[in-house]
Amino acid sequence: MPDEPTGELAFLRSELDQQLRRYSTRRKRDKRKAFGLRLSTVLLSATISVLLGLRNLDGYADLFANIALGLGALITVLAAADAFFSHRELWILRTHTVRDLENIERELRYSMSKDLSPDALKQDVERIYGELNRAIERDSRNWDRLRAPSGTDPKE
């Protein structure tokens, strides 16, 4: 077997690398957004508690109460954004997809390490390419399901 694969094997390796990069990037982005939204709401909630505790300072009661009210409204907006965009669920979905793609990549490396005839290698490549397509289709279906309004079928 040559050092640099050609044909279907080269295409599969390239496609698998591209999909792994794409889904890993999406996973990191969704994790960062989920963490940012969650941390923001926790910090704002804690700030509200502190501000309401400081209301007893003479001359600042109204100011602190108004700031706390504004922060409470901001928390509501952030919570709505979190529920609408579902970054945590997307992060979990992308994590499953990245794991699937890593398993496919490992299977491809193993197949390439075996001393197979060209026909047997071609069959392995075709099978593994099918697994790659199924992993991407599964991610797409799960994404559709996550984005569909509740009570509706995302296929419609």
Score class of each variant (00 low, 15 high):
Met1Trp: 02
Pro2Asp: 04
Glu4Asp: 12
Pro5Lys: 07
Thr6Asp: 03
Thr6His: 11
Gly7Met: 11
Ala10Pro: 01
Phe11Trp: 04
Ser14Trp: 12
Ser14Gly: 13
Ser14Thr: 13
Glu15Arg: 06
Leu16Pro: 00
Gln18Val: 11
Tyr23Asn: 00
Tyr23Ile: 04
Ser24His: 05
Arg27Gly: 01
Arg27Asp: 05
Arg29Trp: 00
Asp30Arg: 01
Lys31Ala: 01
Arg32Trp: 08
Gly36Trp: 14
Thr41Ala: 06
Ser45His: 10
Ala46Asn: 02
Thr47Arg: 10
Thr47Asn: 04
Ser49Trp: 12
Ser49Thr: 03
Leu51Asp: 01
Leu52Val: 15
Leu52Ile: 13
Gly53Cys: 08
Gly53Asp: 13
Leu54Phe: 03
Leu54Glu: 06
Leu54Asn: 03
Asn56Glu: 14
Leu57Pro: 03
Asp62Ser: 09
Asp62Met: 09
Asn66Ala: 09
Asn66Arg: 08
Ile67Asn: 02
Ala68Ile: 05
Leu69Tyr: 10
Gly70Tyr: 14
Gly70Ile: 07
Leu71Tyr: 06
Leu71Val: 11
Ala73Thr: 11
Ile75Cys: 11
Thr76Ala: 04
Leu78Met: 11
Ala79Pro: 00
Ala80Ile: 10
Ala81Tyr: 15
Asp82Gln: 06
Asp82Thr: 04
Ala83Gly: 10
Phe85Trp: 11
His87Leu: 02
Arg88Gly: 08
Glu89Asp: 08
Leu90Glu: 07
Ile92Tyr: 15
Leu93Arg: 03
His96Val: 12
His96Gly: 03
Arg99Ser: 06
Arg99Met: 04
Arg106Pro: 02
Glu107Thr: 12
Arg109Pro: 00
Asp115Leu: 13
Leu116Gln: 10
Ser117Gln: 08
Ala120Gln: 05
Ala120Gly: 05
Leu121Ala: 06
Lys122Met: 14
Arg127Val: 15
Ile128Lys: 00
Gly130Tyr: 04
Gly130Pro: 01
Glu131Thr: 03
Ala135Gly: 12
Ile136Lys: 02
Ile136Tyr: 01
Glu137Thr: 14
Glu137Asp: 12
Arg138Asp: 04
Arg138Tyr: 02
Arg138Asn: 09
Arg141Gln: 09
Arg141Ile: 12
Asn142Met: 05
Arg145Trp: 07
Arg145Ile: 05
Arg147Leu: 08
Gly151Ser: 07
Gly151Gln: 13
Pro154Ser: 04
Lys155Met: 09
Glu156Asp: 12
